[in-house]
């Protein structure tokens, strides 16, 4: 068995969690969130976490579970609208919040994972997001400097992975999982289906094994849907 393979979320996170750490959590809304690792982090009791995640889950699922237990000190997110626990803790001054435009958050992770400490973007120029940040003109346009982002740990959800750590995502569940995987000092991936090397098409791998430090197959994914919208067909 590959040294990267662990039996479950608790085993895969063993030795990686400490108070005050920064965690990059993949997912968009509830789509593609590492639901087993979120539960294991809750059960570990680790606290004062800084979590970078596009959203903050809902009250009783996803990262909302870590808010309920007050394990989160600060969130770095682009949109937190779906969570009343978040709102209550934020308005009471118990939770720090750093808003990043969604593309800036994604690019910060991509840059962080690629060894790029900072980059310039037009996003946010002339808004409160750019306040206190360096700006620079290129070809007559103003850009704001944003920092690359890395974390102590990236927690990532994928569809399939092989025991070497090559990973394939499914549909829109890829989202932040891929860039965040590259930006964690350690990256742990939970998959729905763990297969042997050779069973995934090498041309179809979304995340090469070099980024995956630990991997496990989760059991009984809930994969909750936030807004179930249907047509009559």
């Amino acid at each position: 068995m590959s040294k990267k393979v662990y039996s479950d979320a608790k085993a895969a996170l063993d030795g990686l969690l400490h108070d005050g750490m920064t965690i990059l959590a993949g997912g968009f809304g509830l789509c593609g969130i590492p639901e087993h690792m979120i539960l294991a982090i809750r059960d570990s009791g680790v606290k004062d976490l800084t979590i970078a995640s596009n959203n903050a889950g809902v009250d009783d699922f996803g990262l909302g579970l870590l808010l309920q237990t007050r394990q989160v000190k600060k969130m770095i997110s682009s949109y937190v609208g779906e969570n009343k626990t978040f709102e209550a803790q934020f308005l009471a001054g118990e939770l720090e919040l750093e808003f990043n435009p969604q593309g800036t958050l994604a690019e910060r992770c991509r840059a962080g994972g690629a060894g790029i400490p900072a980059f310039y973007t037009k996003t946010g120029v002339g808004t409160i997001i750019a306040e206190g940040k360096e700006t620079k003109e290129f070809d007559g346009e103003t850009y704001v400097m944003e920092r690359g982002l890395t974390g102590d740990l990236a927690i990532v959800k994928a569809w399939k992975g092989d025991t070497a750590g090559n990973v394939v995502f499914r549909k829109t569940a890829r989202n932040f999982n891929a860039p965040m995987a590259t930006a964690g000092k350690t990256c742990v991936v939970e998959v729905e289906d763990l297969v042997e090397p050779g069973q995934l098409d090498p041309d179809g791998i979304h995340l090469p094994s070099i980024y995956t430090h630990r991997i496990f197959q989760g059991q009984d994914f809930e994969k909750r849907i936030e807004f179930r919208t249907v047509s009559d067909g």
Binding site: S77, S78, L91, P101, G103, K122, T123, I129
Partner: peptide
């Protein structure tokens, strides 16, 4: 309560 800008700042800039 501020919910966040999501992708709006990126869209209007790009």
């Amino acid at each position: 309560m501020v919910k966040g800008m999501g992708g709006a700042m990126d869209l209007v800039a790009g």
